[in-house]
Computed example of a mutant assay.
Amino acid sequence: MPARPARIAPFWLLTAGLAAAMASHTATAWELQGTKTLVAHTRDQQRLTLGTVEFTPRPDGRIAFAVHMDHAKFTDHFLSMKEFKCVEGGGEVSCHVPYPYPNPGTVTPTDLGWLEHHLLFLFKLPKEFGAKLWNGLYYRLERTDAGLVGRPQSIDLNLISAPPAQTDRPPYRPALRDDVAAGVRWIDRIAIE
């Protein structure tokens, strides 16, 4: 019996399937909306859940955010007469430094500066006494299909020891930050997923 020729699906059926696949991909695309998990990825391949970030779209087109660190995952360190919440590993102590001044607390899909300022850290060796504010870390966020990923940049936290002159703009502009090579710091990247 001769083989039957393969049937080709009608064009409309193919385009309908493609449209459905695209709609499902769009529906699952990562957005700056809702509660997301804040995760530290370390150079020794650990994944540490640090807390959450809640995104709330506003009528003006900006997106409000609130960072909620899970302090149960941190230990208290008293450095330079101040309490810091820190995580330790890889021969390094990394301490969260909450941004201390009033700010808009909003972002846009293309401007994540204020969120980055809420994810400041300092690092030190476990045997070192006190906080060396020039050992600051700024995680510059980039958007991916799976969320936001921040790579470390070095900063001097002494810059925010006094209120900035302009409170409506994030003070750590690119000229005040230097890239850190991959694997140099224990928290190699921060992700919001």
Rank of each mutant, 00 (worst) to 15 (best):
F129T: 15
K73Q: 15
A29S: 11
R62T: 12
G89E: 07
T28L: 08
T49R: 08
P109N: 15
F65N: 06
L13N: 02
A27V: 02
F65P: 01
L112V: 00
R43Q: 06
K36C: 02
S24R: 13
T28R: 09
G91S: 14
K82V: 13
K127L: 14
A64N: 01
L14Y: 10
Q45I: 13
T108L: 00
L112R: 00
G130S: 02
K73L: 15
L112E: 01
A16H: 10
K36L: 05
R43K: 06
T106L: 05
A72I: 07
K124S: 03
W114H: 00
H96Y: 12
A16R: 13
L38T: 06
G105F: 06
T52C: 09
D111T: 04
A19L: 06
R62S: 15
A27T: 01
T106D: 11
N103Q: 09
P98I: 02
V87F: 03
L13E: 10
A20F: 02
F121R: 00
E31R: 12
T108W: 00
T56P: 04
A19C: 07
W30M: 05
H25M: 13
T37Q: 02
Q45M: 12
P109R: 11
H71F: 13
R58T: 09
A29T: 06
V53S: 03
T49P: 04
G61I: 10
E54K: 07
E116Q: 08
S80T: 08
G90S: 03
A21P: 11
T52W: 09
E92A: 08
T52A: 07
L48R: 12
E54D: 13
P102T: 09
E88M: 09
A21D: 08
Y99R: 11
T37S: 03
A19E: 04
L13T: 11
A40D: 03
H71N: 14
L48D: 07
V67G: 10
F129E: 15
F78Y: 12
G89D: 06
K124R: 05
D60V: 02
Q33K: 14
P104S: 07
G34M: 05
S94E: 08
P100V: 07
V93M: 08
F74A: 10
L115T: 01
M81I: 11
G17L: 14
T52Q: 10
G51D: 06
M81G: 06
E31C: 13
P109V: 12
V87N: 03
H117R: 06
A16F: 09
Y101M: 12
E92V: 09
H96N: 13
M22A: 13
D70E: 13
P59H: 09
P98D: 06
G113Q: 12
L115N: 01
M81N: 13
I63Y: 01
P100M: 11
F123P: 08
E83L: 15
Q45P: 12
E88Y: 08
L13K: 13
F121C: 05
F55V: 02
L120A: 07
D111I: 00
D76Y: 14
T37Y: 02
T106W: 08
H25S: 14
S94T: 13
C86D: 04
C95L: 02
E88A: 10
H117D: 10
H117S: 14
K82Y: 12
L32I: 04
Y99F: 14
H68M: 14
A16C: 08
P57I: 05
D76P: 11
T15E: 12
V67Q: 00
I63T: 11
E54L: 11
K85G: 10
F55Y: 05
L112D: 00
V97Y: 07
K124C: 01
L18S: 08
